[in-house]
């Protein structure tokens, strides 16, 4: 019984996280300005990381943890690079 509750609520959480990624994708595509797109990308990375974590809970497998960590690191670095680019027009000075 509790197992079914867990599976259903994880499925609902995954649906919510996918919807969150959809909202961020809208910001990523429709801007209106470059900083809005970068903000959308950053929020999308966080939602994707949480989605991978919920997949890990759903399957009971621990390998998804490393994937989530890598997504978090990549999201951080890419957002930093894009923000630098917005400020100066180049990434490496």
């Amino acid at each position: 019984m509790t197992g079914a509750i867990l599976l259903w609520s994880v499925a609902a959480a995954q649906a919510m996280l996918v919807a969150a990624m959809g909202c961020c994708t809208y910001r990523l595509i429709f801007g209106p300005r470059a900083q809005d797109r970068v903000l959308g990308l950053d929020a999308m990375y966080v939602s994707a990381m949480l989605l991978v974590l919920t997949i890990g809970i759903r399957t009971g497998s621990t390998v998804y943890f490393e994937g989530a960590l890598i997504i978090a690191v990549l999201g951080f670095v890419s957002t930093i690079a894009l923000a630098k680019f917005l400020m100066r027009g180049e990434v490496i000075e």
């Binding site: 509750i5 959480a13 919510m16 996280l17 919807a19 969150a20 990624m21 966080v46 939602s47 919920t54």
Partner: peptide
């Protein structure tokens, strides 16, 4: 295999976290 309390706590926390993330994403819209 999960004991009942752990399953319920996990379910509630996963739902809470996903709902907060979704509200934040709606906020960006």
């Amino acid at each position: 295999d999960l004991p009942g309390w752990a399953a319920l706590a996990t379910a509630a926390l996963v739902l809470l976290g996903a709902a907060l993330t979704l509200i934040g994403a709606i906020g960006t819209l």
